[in-house]
């Protein structure tokens, strides 16, 4: 694992999130994601039986894994970890659309863009490198999404992960995701 200048990750606060999908829609506008495909999606998980129920709601996307199976399984080097932000990116021109990455992603975060390459959440690389929030973080009516640099102990995301209880998704796969659910 290479050490990157920054290590951008995302938390989603499951107490705040109501699963409204504003994030998914804002992502669509910002990143021109074709209708019918999505870089983000909303999960609603209910456990128990009537009337003793528990529910967890969160918005999810590519987890920008540190040990990313998609990167390892990409035969052309199109999928890579960006040196500056530590996020997982796809170089469109190198991608042949072979789908090896899609098969290896435990989060089902990737899709084939109609123009032939594999696409997914970039963590709004173009925005965060310009000092802006991601489109999903900006729009979220419940302020449930926080993106920031995990290398910086003073960042809001680092503070939240120190203060709050959190969970991660499918860690058994050894992916070291940088996506956290505050619970």
């Amino acid at each position: 694992m290479t050490r990157t200048a920054h290590k951008y990750g995302m938390v989603v606060d499951t107490i705040a999130c109501v699963g409204c999908s504003a994030c998914t829609l804002a992502c669509r506008s910002e990143n021109e994601v074709p209708e019918g495909l999505s870089r983000r999606w909303v999960n609603q998980e209910t456990r128990g039986s009537f009337p003793d129920l528990k529910m967890k709601i969160w918005s999810e996307s590519c987890q920008h894994c540190e040990n990313a199976p998609c990167v390892k399984n990409c035969p052309t080097g199109a999928s890579f970890i960006d040196d500056f932000t530590g996020t997982v990116q796809v170089e469109r021109d190198l991608c042949t659309g072979c789908k090896a990455c899609m098969a290896s992603c435990p989060y089902d975060a990737r899709y084939i863009h109609p123009t032939g390459y594999v696409d997914k959440c970039t963590l709004c690389h173009h925005r965060i490198t310009g000092g802006l929030e991601t489109a999903c973080e900006t729009v979220c009516p419940t302020s449930a999404i926080v993106v920031g640099d995990l290398n910086d102990p003073g960042s809001e995301i680092s503070q939240l992960l120190r203060k709050r209880k959190f969970e991660q998704r499918r860690t058994a796969a050894g992916t070291r995701p940088k996506f956290f659910l505050l619970v």
Binding site: A22, A26, A135, T138, V139, P141
Partner: peptide, 23 residues
């Protein structure tokens, strides 16, 4: 129109929008 986002100056949006507003 390519994107609709919340007006940070407006007291009812505070820079944020609901999904219908974005859509």
């Amino acid at each position: 129109v390519v994107a609709l986002t919340g007006n940070p100056d407006h007291p009812l949006s505070r820079g944020r929008l609901c999904p219908r507003g974005v859509g």
